[in-house]
Design a protein around this nucleic acid. Structure first.
Lengths: 209, 209
DNA sequence: TGTTCTGCTACCCAAACATGTAGTTGTGCG
DNA sequence: CGCACAACTACATGTTTGGGTAGCAGAACA
């Protein structure tokens, strides 16, 4: 028996999901709430929630903020986020907070069963649109082509690691002035004029990790 | 008609794929090669390849290196990478290079059709294990919780934007000393001691964008 | 009503940095 | 060979920064 929890403020969707899932064999919705707060107040059932469907746009505490809290109460539950919004920021923050899946409401009923089965199996489930976003995240930078030499890349990496000129000189076993020299060149190439800007630009452009 | 290209050095898998796909209605393998080099030498067909199945572990040029090259020759083709290896580094580098999907060989025949249909529809397709890796990537950093005030976040954003103390003071309309004051607090919270490290840490921790 | 916290201002000093100019190697290329 | 170029060294100057200490005002909270 797969026990489901639902937190969703839209009553139509909430009850629709409950009805739909309860009709499936081996599925039971054991806790259904309109907000994170209500969910946490709900009396504990004998059956712990195995899969939690969590809306992001909720009254009171957002699903995103609630996720970490809920994870503490239900450490073994898999959590599938749902939202009508496709803003990447929500997606990545959900992953960061430990979500196991991500669905869009427009595909909710079509995909929810697959999603539940995936996360129960220990996999993750992402709506195709989300997968697209994730790939875009990696692929995204229509990066202004910046050509830097291997040596310069080393220098940049040192900066990103937070080293001072002196420490860079030590690590790369070159003189302080040489470090300065490379930095000067980097500043020209990146069209910046401070260490911090190099770090910022390098990280944003995936020049280094 | 969905035209397929296959680059795969293992003859058994290669021919198995070709046979399997050619038997499906509306699918035709128009170019099949054992390496990137051979693929590029193959005579052009009337039908451009719409979907390319690209092995990563190839003799000669690796699929990873070949991907960018192939994208130039087949700018409109969708590329699905396949590998027996689940090293995350390959996965993310594939995405970076513009792959549209990622399959494991152990699931190749079970998933290849779904994968092709997904990428044709403009979606992405990831093997469940890959999705897991991707989520882990975001979730991984058991992120040391860093609490900074709204004001401090503004300061950090300014640093990331490459401003000097003086310019930060101007932008936020506070005194130079106040900027210094906030920076000192940030250094303590982030346990660093330079502007660059703040920028680096902030970007890596998604404190700001 | 007093404590605590955030945000703010101020001053000082040594270290680190930004920027210029000027020159020496060693490698690869036509 | 001679040139270009990456990598490197050196010196000089003024600016920015990191780190310390010290104090004030308003909001929040008990």
């Amino acid at each position: 028996m797969t026990t489901i929890g639902i937190i969703e403020d839209d009553a139509v969707i909430r009850e629709g999901l409950r009805t739909y899932l309860n009709r499936l064999p081996d599925y039971r919705c054991v806790v259904v709430a309109g907000s994170v707060e209500h969910f946490l107040e709900a009396p504990l059932t004998d059956e712990p929630v195995k899969v939690l469907l969590l809306d992001i746009g909720l009254p009171g505490m957002s699903g995103l903020d609630g996720l970490k809290l809920l994870k503490q109460h239900l450490p073994h539950a898999k959590v599938i986020m749902s939202t009508g919004n496709d803003e990447s920021t929500y997606i990545f923050r959900s992953f960061n907070a430990g979500a196991n899946g991500y669905l869009f409401k427009k595909n909710l009923f079509a995909e929810v069963r697959n999603a539940i089965e995936s996360v129960i199996d220990g996999h993750a489930y992402l709506s195709p649109i989300v997968t697209r976003k994730v790939l875009d995240f990696f692929n995204a930078p229509p990066t202004e082509q910046i050509e830097i030499t291997a040596r310069e890349r080393q220098i940049v990496q040192c900066l990103v690691d937070g080293l001072s000129y002196k420490l860079i000189a030590d690590r790369l076993d070159i003189s302080l002035d040489t470090v300065r020299f490379h930095l000067k060149n980097l500043y020209k190439k990146l069209r910046v004029n401070s260490k911090s800007e190099v770090v910022s630009k390098a990280l944003k452009s995936n020049l280094v990790s």
